[in-house]
Simulated scan of single mutants.
Amino acid sequence: MHRLDGLVIMVQPMKRIVRNGKRILVPVTEKVADYKRYDKQRMRNEPERINFYKSKRWQKVRRIKLINNPLCEVCSTPDSPVLAEMVDHMIETNTTEGWSHRFDEEYLQSMCWSCHNTKTFSRD
């Protein structure tokens, strides 16, 4: 609570988060997916997949996919183009089929962070 010339102004506590690649302030009461905890858990439990994402081969495949398909394949429209920021596996890499097709371009899709996070965290 702040006082300004006799007026009482109520200030809501805020917290800083990253949403769609941008740092923003939101009320502390807003529920936010805990991506950091999710990533730390993956590092601990799935080191082979983490090493795959760091590999030069994957980085090259990812770069080529984003060059060939620079717009989000989920939400982008001709009237409202949305730049893709990442490449998603259509079949999860933690399945045998997904792992065997992890470098195949026909099993990949260019996505913006918003669409990717919606897809990834709606499975939980």
Results as ranks from 00 to 15, higher is better:
Gly98Arg: 08
Tyr35Ser: 04
Pro78Ser: 12
Lys15His: 08
Lys40Tyr: 06
Ile50Arg: 07
Gly6Asp: 00
Ser114Gln: 09
Met43Trp: 08
Cys112Asp: 04
Gly21Arg: 13
Met43Ile: 12
Gln12Val: 14
Thr96Glu: 10
Asn20Glu: 00
His89Glu: 01
Cys112Gln: 05
Gln109Gly: 01
Gly21Val: 06
Ile9Pro: 01
Tyr107Asp: 05
Tyr107Arg: 09
Arg44Glu: 06
Ile67Gly: 01
Met43Thr: 11
Arg42Gly: 06
Ile64Met: 04
Ile67Arg: 12
Leu108Ser: 02
Tyr107Gln: 09
Tyr107Leu: 11
Met1Arg: 10
Ser110Arg: 02
Ser76Trp: 02
Glu105Arg: 05
Val32Gln: 03
Trp113Arg: 14
Asp124Glu: 11
Cys115Arg: 03
Lys56Glu: 01
Cys112Ser: 04
Pro13Ala: 13
Met1Thr: 15
Pro47Gly: 07
Met111Phe: 04
Thr29Ser: 13
Asp124Ala: 12
Glu46Trp: 12
Lys31Asn: 04
Phe52Pro: 00
Glu30Asp: 12
Pro47Cys: 08
Arg49Glu: 06
Val61Asn: 03
Lys15Trp: 09
Pro13Thr: 13
Arg102His: 08
Thr29Met: 12
Cys115Glu: 00
Lys60Trp: 09
Leu4Tyr: 14
Asp88Gln: 06
Glu106Val: 12
Asp34Tyr: 01
Leu66Asn: 06
Glu30Lys: 11
Thr93Ser: 08
Lys40Arg: 12
Asp5Ile: 09
Lys56Pro: 01
Leu83Trp: 07
Glu46Asn: 09
Glu48Ile: 08
His2Glu: 14
Arg102Gln: 04
Asn45Thr: 08
Met10Arg: 15
Leu4Ala: 04
Glu46Lys: 12
His89Asp: 02
Ser114Lys: 11
Gln12Ile: 15
Arg23Ile: 13
Tyr107Asn: 12
Phe52Asp: 01
Pro27Gly: 15
Arg49Lys: 10
Val74Ile: 12
Asp88Cys: 10
